[in-house]
Design a protein around this nucleic acid. Sequence first.
DNA 1: GGTACGGGCTAACAGCGTTAGCCTGACGCC
DNA 2: GGCGTCAGGCTAACGCTGTTAGCCCGTACC
Lengths: 201, 201
Amino acid sequence: MGEPTWAAAGAPTTVRNVPMQLTPRGREIVDAARDLLDREGPDALTMRRLAESLGIRAPSLYKHLPDKDALEAAVISLAFEEFGDALAAATEHADDRLWALAVAYRGFALDHPHLYRLMTGRPLRRDLLAPGSEQRGSRALDDATGGDADLGRALWAFAHGMTVLELDDRFPRSADLDAAWRRGVDSFRAGVARPRTGERS
Amino acid sequence: MGEPTWAAAGAPTTVRNVPMQLTPRGREIVDAARDLLDREGPDALTMRRLAESLGIRAPSLYKHLPDKDALEAAVISLAFEEFGDALAAATEHADDRLWALAVAYRGFALDHPHLYRLMTGRPLRRDLLAPGSEQRGSRALDDATGGDADLGRALWAFAHGMTVLELDDRFPRSADLDAAWRRGVDSFRAGVARPRTGERS
DNA sequence: GGTACGGGCTAACAGCGTTAGCCTGACGCC
DNA sequence: GGCGTCAGGCTAACGCTGTTAGCCCGTACC
């Protein structure tokens, strides 16, 4: 056999470390990986278990993907797009966009904890990601803070922190997390209307 | 040989899943693990590498610790205490306690990224932790928010979010993280003086 | 001196990601 | 019809991981 099928279609011999073009079969595998992770968690996402779920053997996966890092990067790219779409849909026609964003952010993570952790739990292999997918995940956040980058980052950090601490069971069971979210979002709200493109909340 | 040495000294046959009393040798091993992790990162913290750094073989470690989870839990317990002490020392005599706390929080994580990630990166095995160590890590934070639990959680989430996003290289390289920290801390500061035991910042 | 035991050792197992090398079936082409 | 190409499977195997079983040696105590 010649070049492996996961290489970019255009100039297969020159590309290195470029986010691959998925073949249809490759896409099936990535979808299966997404579902396996989402349902059973990261320990279940092994090459052998994934292959089994597709009715093939583990080494066959390497005909479609270079390695597990690339597989995870593809799942992450997918997840960023799902995530971004969910946030955009939730905030689009909301009265209180900032709060709607917070609710949607938390909701996605609680619905897909393993996916969210994979997306955010360690340094990103940006060289393996589908181009633009990361931005698509964070676009709604940028919009909601009206172009104020520092505030946007602070708000993102707060939302991510609340989310990951809740997912990891870090707060006391008795904690009123709705109240903490309210408190945080309200604290940031003051800053959001002021600078430049003041948007109604 | 009878009972393994890592079991609690008091009633060795009845305890299950109780945070162990470390023997002196066990403590040496945990210290070595802490240093290995701190210096070389989580991939380096394998039972074989750890044993090698102590001049022994991997199976011998199991004479002192039940398994790797317990080892990591012991390292985490240590790290919580280090972390708590660092925060307490930094905020004790500071003019602006909230800001001093933020600086110390970020500083510890940047100085010990692997340790910080181990402490916070996944659900805590509280059943394996040394009792009280978790509280010792978060005490300074509680103090700084004057007993307002919701605000404390929101502030913690913000600090943790900023920290982990920075460690994971999630912000653009051009981002002014000092400004984002300032922005976040200032947003929360308004709330801190008000409720109950109003403390000067 | 005998016994207990702390603290080391080797050999081995199952599961992990991954590679090398082989085979089969479908397709285009002369 | 025969041939070459190649997508997409396969088995066997390697080195790594955490972990267990079982053995052995030195020290301390009665």
